[in-house]
Structure formats: structure tokens, C-alpha cells
Simulated scan of single mutants.
Amino acid sequence: MKRLEIKDLCVAYGGVKALRGVSLSVAQGQTVMITGPNGAGKSTLMKALAGVVKPQSGQIFLGGHDVTGLSAERVAVAGLSMVPEGRHVFGSMSVLENLRVASGRRRDKAQVLADLDSLLDVFPMLKERTHVQAGLLSGGQQQMLVIARALMTAPTLLAIDEPSLGLAPKVTDQVYESLHTLQARNQLSLLIVEQSSARVVMTGAHMVLLRSGQVVLEGSARSLDAQAIEAAYFGM
């Protein structure tokens, strides 16, 4: 089953086209990673998916339902949870409070508690700091917190914009290891923007390479030729 399907999506800012007919899909339990140089349209794609910007044309389906042009709130209700670029924690609130606030709309309280326990097992650094103010956490711990907080909404698709931004390579490894654990445990569907094509290849996920608002290369990251990736990335 396709959790996400984007068809011929176009987004323009004034007279400038940021996305030009982008199409991609994410199946149940699949990880798809979007990469490309600065200005490729990666963040615009995520904003259009989240309902922050309106597409000029094209369609977006979540779980088979057309969510094109819907508000961010309605897209979230449809099953998308977005982790935007830059770690936006509620700094004065504790780690536990950050996690609990995300489950406010859920009625399945027993499952909420089970999900909370499960996530704290996956992120032991958070488990050790449940009563620490989120603003006092390190950058890597805050990144783990915003991912865990997004998952507390029980999404059908988790979208993450630049999870490794500003993090040391070792910390980035820990973030991706946690995502891999969650994906395998829960058949989680992931859409991740990652500027480093080398990091995408390391994960072995399905790669979608954007340049100038268009998909210029797509396929299993480890099966794609390194020279082809470099040529597509730099427009050679």
C-alpha cells in the first residue's frame, strides 16, 4: 500500500518555479530519502506536503486520500507528522511534557502510554532525562526528542527535514540507528530530506535526487552508480 503518492507537483513563488512536475511515492514500511544541492526544492516539497504552501498544480495523496491544498492541521489529521528543519522543542517544558503534549488529540490512552514506553526504549538518552528541560538538551538529544514527539501523534507517515543538520557524524549515526529501529519495529513509513548524498548511500534507502525543482535521478541508493549520483547532484 502507498502511504504517500505525489503526482506531477508544481510549486511557484511569484513567477519562480520551485518544483517542476515532481512525482514520488512511499510504500508502507518504506524509507525514501530526498537529496540534492541547495535550492533544489527539497524544503519546498516538504512544505507543500505539510500544507504550508499551496501547490500550483499536481496532487498529493496520503493513504489514498487526496490532501492537495489542505491546511496543515487537516494534513496532520490525515496521518502526516512533520519534523521540520531546525530542532523546535518546547524549551521550558520537560522532555516528558514535550512528548505528552503531542498525544493530546489521541483517545487511545492505553496505547499512548505503550507508545511512550516504546519510544523511550528506542531513545534511552531521553529516558534518562524525562524531567530535564528540553532547552537544556544537546543538539542530538533535541533531534531525538522532536522525532519521538512527532511519533507520539501515531502518524501513518513520518517526514523529517534534514535530521543531521548541525550534528556531529557520530550523533547523526545514532539518530539514523534509532530511525532504523523504529522503521523495522513498527513498519514505519519514512520520508527524509538529507542534503548529504553520501549519508543517503550509507542508509541504503530509496533515493530521490532533486535538482532545480525536478527529479533527476531515482533508485536504490546502493545500486546507483557513484559517478551518476555525482553528475546528477552537480548538474554535470
Rank of each mutant, 00 (worst) to 15 (best):
G15H: 04
V215A: 03
M33Q: 07
L19R: 02
G219A: 03
L119H: 10
K127M: 08
Q56P: 00
L119E: 11
R185M: 15
V11N: 10
A184S: 14
D115C: 00
A18Y: 07
G29M: 09
Q142Y: 00
M46A: 11
G15A: 09
S212T: 14
L62A: 08
P55C: 05
K109H: 12
A40M: 02
T203L: 15
S138M: 08
P155D: 12
R105I: 13
G79T: 06
L19I: 09
P163R: 07
Q174M: 13
L209R: 02
E218R: 06
A72K: 10
P37K: 02
S189V: 13
M152L: 06
H131D: 12
H180I: 09
A226W: 09
V208F: 00
M207H: 06
A205G: 13
K127R: 11
L210S: 06
F61H: 15
S71P: 04
Y13E: 02
D225W: 09
V95W: 04
G39D: 05
K109F: 01
K42Y: 02
S71H: 00
R87C: 05
A76C: 12
G15Q: 09
I229Y: 00
L45M: 02
N38R: 01
K54Q: 15
T44E: 07
M202F: 05
S71R: 08
Q56H: 08
N186T: 02
I192E: 14
R211I: 09
E177I: 13
L80W: 05
M82I: 04
G69D: 14
A50L: 01
L188K: 00
G63W: 06
L145I: 04
P169N: 05
V67H: 10
A184C: 15
T35I: 00
E177V: 15
H65D: 14
L137S: 07
S189W: 12
S223G: 07
P124G: 12
G41C: 01
G139I: 14
Q30R: 06
A231P: 05
V112R: 11
A168K: 11
P37C: 05
V216K: 02
P84T: 01
L137C: 02
V32E: 13
T130E: 14
R107D: 15
V201Q: 11
L49G: 10
G79W: 00
A228D: 12
R107P: 04
G139V: 12
Y233M: 01
R87F: 01
F123V: 13
E177D: 15
G139T: 11
T44Q: 06
S178P: 06
V11C: 12
A72W: 04
S57R: 07
V193G: 00
Y233E: 04
A72H: 07
T31E: 15
